[in-house]
Design a protein around this nucleic acid. Structure first.
Lengths: 294, 294
DNA sequence: TTTCTTTCTTCACATCAATCGAATAAGATT
DNA sequence: AATCTTATTCGATTGATGTGAAGAAAGAAA
């Protein structure tokens, strides 16, 4: 009748190893092992196949672990019943898409700590799709993801930031048209397989301009250095590129009209942070610049 | 994170007193008190109003208690996941309508103990409507009730017994017609406000025969004695009346066609005994006679 | 295969939380 | 007010749960 064993089970199921689960839960390996053994005796069921060294969940074990999440969720809801609706308290897990983790995270943490001292967040990063899947699986309570069509209807979203995409040109191309750039230098494509990458690809399509040469990079700082060095030009969210040597990189708004990338705070409807997600979204207030520059 | 406190809370909420809840839970009053205090500190909420001597649940406390039942239900489901589908294990609460508790209960208990030694049942009695309400509220896992239209769709039912209603006439009326009886002696109406009582009233209606005089009784043995003494005649389920002095009471089938009263085992769909209700219904096999006479 | 590393299990021991019984306090009841 | 019933509090005991070290077992490397 103790939920700790269930919580441990879910963590073990998620992580796939007793040692790592123990570390995450701040307890010893032996405690985890004991708990799982206790649980198996209590339920009179084989949850793990110990023929493998990280013991593998049996099919039954997987079902139990999934159901354990429901039980824990129901329990968390009960705890939530007793909390005043304008405060947040407890341990939560929040996910960030990589670029947002650099820019939005610090300000978010500062504000949240000030406003909700009894709330603690474990921060995890991942691509939008990954984070959404983890929200659905219940291994994440809330996440900052790239907004758009990809976010399913079952999730509630709250706008967190609204960022203009801009062309980033090297100094020597200051007077060039975008067509000139396409023809004469490389296009540096940032993370094409991600939410923001798809947005960039979409813009290239829209301009019906095929770059002569494409370089793919997965770090904003690398893109910035390459642009500055004159290797090529790029498209990035303005706040991201502004963090790097703005003076030596030419920023130019998207043509014919501005394009924005939206970051939203997503939360499964009815999940335990559902009622508080709006409050948390406010902790991003002021946008990126203020949050990081403060 | 311990479910025992939640279970205690639900029992306290149901019973309305710490002492009685403690007795039901086989623990001391102080333990119950401590648990409730612990729970209140943990949730940081006032669950009870201690201005009254059996402490009264606050509105929040009531909500928490209701939600606690959900949590416990989810937990029970999890336990159920691990049990083989053809065995039953654990503590359950079963309700019986009064007459069935006399006749069906012993046989049921004997068979269930033999077949499912790890299942334990707390037996409670009540009228059909009461039992159905308690099933819905989750304070009962399963119940034997009078079948018919009253059983809502959300409940699954399994036939348990099928009993003919019969006229019970005193010896001196052995040759009388029912019309004669109506005119000359009292009709003894058994428990008119219950499931079976409504069925009896329905039969009187159908026969379009208004008895001259009606005596209401709520015990089968009292009905039997009155009939035997020649006070009046009655309608009862055959197995019930057979338990009393059959030789000195004339039984006659209902006219124009036989009428039956069905007892069903009812269970909320999706509740923790849902999957096993069919098996339990089998424990009533053989019907009343066999069960009690064995 | 043999050896080594990693990971889990087991054990004795320490620690903490839950329960009990008795004494006390506080609403109900008369 | 006196008394009854019921809940709270307190110290002592018990049981459950966690720790760390030693042992076993699976997987990787030689």
């Amino acid at each position: 009748m103790n939920l700790n064993t269930l919580r441990t089970l879910t963590v073990v199921a998620e992580i796939g190893s007793f040692v790592d689960a123990a570390q995450r839960l701040n307890m010893t390996l032996s405690a985890v092992s004991m708990q799982m053994k206790t649980l198996e005796t209590l339920l009179d069921a084989d949850l793990f196949d110990r023929g493998f060294r990280p013991p593998q969940l049996t099919p039954l074990g997987r079902r139990v672990a999934r159901h354990a999440r429901t039980v824990l969720g129901a329990y968390d809801d009960l705890v939530g019943l007793c909390q005043s609706p304008d405060t947040i308290k407890g341990d939560f897990r929040i996910g960030f898409v990589p670029t947002s983790s650099v820019r939005l995270l610090p300000g978010f943490l500062v504000r949240v700590r000030a406003r909700f001292p009894d709330a603690h967040f474990r921060i995890e990063t991942g691509l939008s799709d990954d984070l959404l899947a983890r929200l659905r699986a219940g291994t994440l309570d809330i996440a900052v993801v790239t907004g758009g069509d990809d976010v399913p209807r079952t999730m509630r979203t709250y706008p967190v930031s609204h960022e203009a995409l801009v062309f980033c040109l090297p100094p020597h191309a200051a007077d060039w048209s975008i067509e000139d750039c396409m023809a004469r230098i490389s296009f540096i494509h940032f993370m094409p397989h991600t939410g923001i990458g798809r947005l960039i690809a979409q813009q290239l399509d829209r301009m019906a301009a095929t770059p002569g040469d494409v370089i793919v990079l997965d770090r904003v700082d690398a893109v910035a250095e390459c642009v500055r060095a004159g290797v090529g030009f790029s498209i990035l969210p303005e706040p991201d590129i502004r963090r790097f040597a703005t003076d030596s990189i030419i920023l130019r708004p998207m043509t014919p009209e501005p394009v924005t990338r939206d970051l939203v705070l997503a939360c499964v409807a009815g999940s335990r942070l559902d009622a508080h997600a709006g409050l948390l979204a406010e902790a991003f207030a002021g946008g990126i610049g203020e949050a990081t520059d403060a």
